[in-house]
């Protein structure tokens, strides 16, 4: 009987200690989780803010002003654009240029042409 009592009491104390320990650990983890969630939230908020900031700083109005001040470039005109076919013959509609036949004899030029013919998708400028 005494043995049983002692055994049960020991069990009781053991379980109590175990539960207490578990509770303490849980509290610790909880705090940690809360901190992490908060940090995550803060980082998320910051990310959203920075995204807005980047968009604000790169708005066309500002970029244009800066470009006008610092770059000595003119806006591009449509007349300056050419189709792919003019740059890499064979990819789009064929364009007859005077230098085309003679240039083919040049080995490197032929290589470049071959490469660009492979990479340049047809119809894309």
């Amino acid at each position: 009987m005494r043995t049983l009592c002692l055994l049960a009491f020991g069990c009781f104390v053991g379980l109590f200690a175990y539960t207490y320990n578990l509770k303490l650990k849980t509290r610790g983890l909880e705090t940690e989780a809360r901190e992490l969630v908060n940090a995550l939230q803060d980082e998320g908020d910051f990310l959203a803010l920075m995204r807005a900031e980047v968009s604000y700083l790169s708005r066309p109005e500002r970029i244009e002003d800066m470009a006008r001040k610092t770059l000595k470039l003119e806006p591009i005109a449509s007349a300056q654009l050419v189709p792919w076919s003019a740059v890499a013959p064979g990819t789009g509609a064929p364009v007859q240029t005077s230098r085309a036949p003679s240039a083919r004899k040049d080995g490197i030029a032929a290589l470049i042409e071959k490469a660009s013919a492979q990479t340049a998708p047809a119809g894309v400028r």
């Binding site: 049983l4 009592c5 049960a8 009781f12 379980l15 109590f16 539960t19 578990l22």
Partner: peptide
Amino acid sequence: LFVCAFTIVSGRIIHYG
């Protein structure tokens, strides 16, 4: 009675834990 009490208390502790 002791066994019953211990069982209940242990059960609760295990349950909480």
